[in-house]
C-alpha cells in the first residue's frame, strides 16, 4: 500500500458516498446512467470472485471489496425500485454490446492464464476502463449536469488517475508492472480528460457544468 493507492481508494469510496447522497437528498437519480451503474456491478462481481477463489490479501482489501459490491448493488436497487420514476431510460441509450463484446474478446486474448477466474479478472479490468462511457454519453446528450453529479464523476475519475502514480511507485519499489491493469487504467483515465477540463475550468469556479455548444 502506498499513499497514491490509498488516496485513490478513498476517492473511489467518496465517489460512491457522493452518488448515494445525491440520490437520497434529491430523491432522484436524474442524470445518472443506469447502464454505467449496472456495468460497475458487473465489474465488481467478475473481479471480486477472488474473494472466494483468490489468495487472502488483507482485511482492508476484503472490506473494501465487500463495500463496493454491496453499494453498487444498492445503487441499482435505488435506481430500478425506490426511485424508478426519476430514472429516464430514453436518454441512456449507449449500446452496451459495443463495450461487452470487445472486452470479452480482449479478456480472452490478454489474461494471466487461460482459466475462468483470470479471464473474468481481465474482463473486469477492461470493462472498468470503459464503464463510464454510457454516463459520459448521457452527459453529452443532455449537455449539462447537476454540480453534485459532476463531483461524483470527478471523484470517480480521480480514483483511477491516482492509480497511475501508484503503478509508477510500484514499478520502482517492486521492479515489475502489470501491463493489463496499467494500460487499461491509462485508457480509463484518458476518457475523463475532457470532463476534468470542464470540471476544473467551470464547476470549481462556481459555474454550471455545461458543455460548449
Amino acid at each position: 500500500m502506498n499513499i497514491f493507492r490509498l488516496i485513490g481508494d478513498l476517492s473511489h469510496l467518496a465517489s460512491i458516498f457522493i452518488l448515494l447522497h445525491k440520490i437520497q437528498t434529491t430523491r432522484s437519480c436524474r442524470g445518472i446512467s443506469f447502464k454505467t451503474q449496472a456495468l460497475y456491478v458487473t465489474v465488481f462481481a467478475t473481479r471480486y470472485l477472488d474473494l472466494i477463489f483468490g489468495e487472502f490479501v488483507s482485511v482492508y482489501n476484503v472490506i473494501m471489496k465487500l463495500f463496493f459490491l454491496g453499494s453498487s448493488c444498492y445503487i441499482l436497487y435505488l435506481m430500478k425500485m425506490k426511485y424508478k420514476p426519476t430514472n429516464d431510460p430514453s436518454i441512456d441509450t449507449f449500446r452496451l454490446e459495443y463495450l461487452l463484446g470487445p472486452c470479452t474478446v480482449l479478456a480472452l486474448i490478454f489474461n494471466f492464464s487461460f482459466t475462468p477466474v483470470e479471464i473474468l479478472w481481465s474482463f473486469s479490468i477492461f470493462l472498468e476502463a470503459v464503464a463510464i462511457l454510457p454516463q459520459l454519453f448521457m452527459l453529452q446528450r443532455t449537455g449539462e449536469a447537476e454540480a453534485i453529479t459532476t463531483h461524483y464523476l470527478a471523484a470517480l475519475g480521480a480514483y483511477r488517475a491516482l492509480y497511475i502514480p501508484n503503478w509508477i511507485y510500484r514499478y520502482y519499489t517492486e521492479g515489475s508492472w502489470d501491463p493489463i491493469a496499467v494500460l487499461a487504467g491509462l485508457v480509463q483515465t484518458g476518457l475523463y480528460l475532457d470532463f476534468f477540463y470542464i470540471y476544473v475550468t467551470k464547476v470549481l469556479q462556481g459555474q454550471k457544468f455545461e458543455l460548449p455548444a
Binding site: 483468490g54 482489501n61 473494501m64 471489496k65 491493469a181
Partner: peptide, 10 residues
C-alpha cells in the same frame, strides 16, 4: 507462481 501484481489492488 506468484500472483500477478495488480491482483492485490481494488
Amino acid at each position: 507462481q506468484p500472483q500477478p501484481q495488480a491482483h492485490d489492488e481494488l
